[in-house]
Amino acid sequence: MTEDRTSFEDRLRAAQTRVAGKQPAEQQPDSEDKSILALAARAGSEMLGGLIAGVLIGWGLDRWFHYRALFLVVFALLGGCAGILNVWRLVKPPGTDERES
């Protein structure tokens, strides 16, 4: 009976903090990845996405400024870096957050 009462009060407090607009402190920055499958489905395309974005932007700038392939080369490299950065952001252990984004 007492346990029921404490659990109810815990829940009440949790509900009150929620309504007050304050999240309980135990929320982790990376708690979004509940499903490991969702994580696995993301990793490859995050890397590819960076590279493709870089290649597209480089190609577009080349067309715009009539350079041969300067921007394409530079932005493909930067895009690859961005892709690796995306994957690192995805898989990094919690607590190594360099910034609060």
Binding site: S45, E46, L48, I52, C81, A82, N86
Partner: peptide, 15 residues
């Protein structure tokens, strides 16, 4: 790199 990482979001999301 950060800007590209940001711009890669819709690309990777759609691809």
């Amino acid at each position: 790199i950060e800007i590209l990482s940001f711009l890669s979001r819709p690309v990777s999301l759609s691809i």
